[in-house]
Design a protein around this nucleic acid. Structure first.
Lengths: 110, 110
DNA sequence: CCATCGACTTCTACAAAGTAGAACAAATGG
DNA sequence: CCATTTGTTCTACTTTGTAGAAGTCGATGG
């Protein structure tokens, strides 16, 4: 279908995290969500690097908020998945689904 | 959960292709299966590079067959997913499933 | 007020995964 | 023999992924 660019696996995970978090989607929180959901304890640098790349590709946008009045409550950078990002994610997930189709889950560990 | 190594997205696709192909799983055929299923027209070098990596990681094994009596029927290198590979694949797919959980598919393009 | 703490983001450096396509190998058909 | 077909290997490079130290900037406590 598309010819150029495919999402890596971690990019997909990060996009999914952004979608789940909605208005709460900022770097540290994204990392936490991934850890809670998948048990994967990724380095924070990995998250931001991926977020930056997704932004450069035009899949997400970001804006910096006002600081909040709490201890350490500095300004956060919030991310949002835009239409192109949803499209790319849907396509990637579709590819995997196609490859899985018809395979009984019997290949999972016995 | 696991701490070291995660499968990339293309690695997952290749593993799934091997599982679908069973006894027919050799390089060129893998490429064809992926093209047919996902529309992704990957370079043959990409497939072999990935296959080699999967073998080095101990996720698949390969053996070279006898040539067959057809035009161009040279010996093929057949691949098989072993238990470790199934485990890794199941884990990777599980991570994605966890991230997807509860997200209505409404994020797909409208 | 200033030292420190806590929540966040940036930076630097490197390893692993993915991409491309030309080169090479071996079998067959004419 | 040699052109053709099916397959695999090689070389070179780009993109993703990983790690953790460093830097920012409010708030808090003395």
């Amino acid at each position: 279908m598309a010819k150029g660019e495919y999402l890596g696996e971690f990019e997909q995970i990060v996009l999914l995290a952004l979608l789940r978090l909605g208005a709460e989607a900022y770097g540290l929180r994204v990392r936490q969500e991934i850890a809670e959901r998948t048990g994967r304890d990724v380095a924070i640098g990995a998250v931001y690097a991926t977020l930056d790349r997704l932004e450069n590709k035009g899949y997400v946008t970001s804006r910096v908020s006002e600081p909040t009045p709490e201890r350490g409550g500095r300004a956060k950078r919030y991310f949002e998945v835009i239409a192109e990002g949803r499209r790319a994610l849907a396509e990637a997930q579709h590819s995997l689904a196609q490859m899985r189709e018809g395979l009984t889950e019997s290949w999972r560990m016995s």
